[in-house]
């Protein structure tokens, strides 16, 4: 009886403690953020070592998966290659024409962004979140809200920056929301992650005509995220009866399973 009572008291204390912590965390206090930053910094060296040690296993799984899908991938790439060849000659002419017009108008070419190369040292892929940890933080000039890209396109945005590491919310995270455009029609929308880990382009009116394969880029309305970064292409469109907007699913250009090195856009 005594032991049971003691157990219940301990459980009660833990529950109350958890409820207090949950409430403080939910209110989003600076204290919680500070503790998170300190914890990230403290565990970063060990986490990095563990990640590097086990990375070959993840690579092996990735390679096996790629090998199994090779035939299908080759077919898709061959088709894409023939389309790109068609576009190539047209684009060269357009580039020459564009440069000539810029010179005439006195408009400067877009400057390259200042970036910081970072290595992925951790994944967090729960039902309610898709995040990665990078080995760069405030000591390297990384701030919250900065965009993260790789050679394929947009990866996500920094949500928490500690001294020597930071956490990045991927674009398929259910809480992710990024301003975007359809490249061909210039229509504005929001790229948002779904609960099913898919990515959607929301707030596109039903009357807008969109095509499967249309490319999505970031819009110019992001605070720290530059415009015209490739996000993905439209995979499917649908419309529900009660909604004034289309339901558009996007296939991202980035393969989140193969993230290893990324660039943080500093400005």
């Amino acid at each position: 009886m005594g032991k049971n009572f003691k157990n219940l008291i301990v459980l009660g204390i833990i529950i109350v403690l958890c409820l207090v912590i949950i409430t403080v965390s939910f209110k989003g206090s600076d204290l919680t953020k500070g503790v998170k930053v300190k914890t990230l910094d403290f565990f970063k060296p060990v986490q990095e070592k563990f990640f590097l040690f086990f990375h070959p296993v993840a690579n092996f799984i990735n390679s096996t998966r790629d090998y199994l899908n090779l035939r299908e991938k080759i077919k898709i790439l061959e088709k894409e290659n023939s389309n790109l060849r068609k576009d190539y000659s047209e684009n060269i002419n357009l580039k020459i024409e564009n440069n000539a017009l810029r010179e005439l108008l006195g408009v400067k070419l877009r400057k390259d962004y200042e970036t910081e190369l970072a290595k992925v040292i951790g994944f967090s892929m729960g039902e309610l979140q898709s995040e990665i940890t990078l080995n760069k933080g405030t000591n390297d000039g990384v701030l919250e809200g900065m965009g993260v890209v790789n050679e394929d396109g947009l990866v996500g945005a920094v949500i928490l920056s500690a001294g020597n590491s930071c956490r990045v919310k991927l674009i398929n995270d259910p809480r992710s929301s990024i301003g975007a455009r359809i490249l061909s029609s210039r229509v504005l929308g929001m790229v948002e992650g779904g609960n099913d880990k898919k990515i959607y382009l929301n707030y596109i009116p039903k009357e807008e005509i969109v095509f499967r394969g249309d490319v999505i880029i970031t819009s110019e309305y992001g605070k720290l995220l530059p415009s015209e970064i490739l996000v993905g292409r439209i995979k499917s469109t649908a419309g529900s009866a009660g909604s004034p907007y289309k339901e558009i699913e996007i296939e991202p250009f980035v393969d989140f399973k193969e993230l290893e090195y990324v660039l943080i856009i500093k400005g």
Binding site: L11, I14, I15, C18, I21, T39, S124
Partner: peptide, 29 residues
């Protein structure tokens, strides 16, 4: 329960965006 609480808190703190304390409560329970 103590170990569950401690591991849960650390997990919540290290996995950034979520609410801290939920994993701690779930593991302790």
């Amino acid at each position: 329960a103590f170990c569950g609480f401690a591991a849960g808190i650390l997990l919540d703190l290290m996995t950034g965006g979520g609410i801290v304390g939920i994993s701690a409560f779930a593991y302790a329970a």
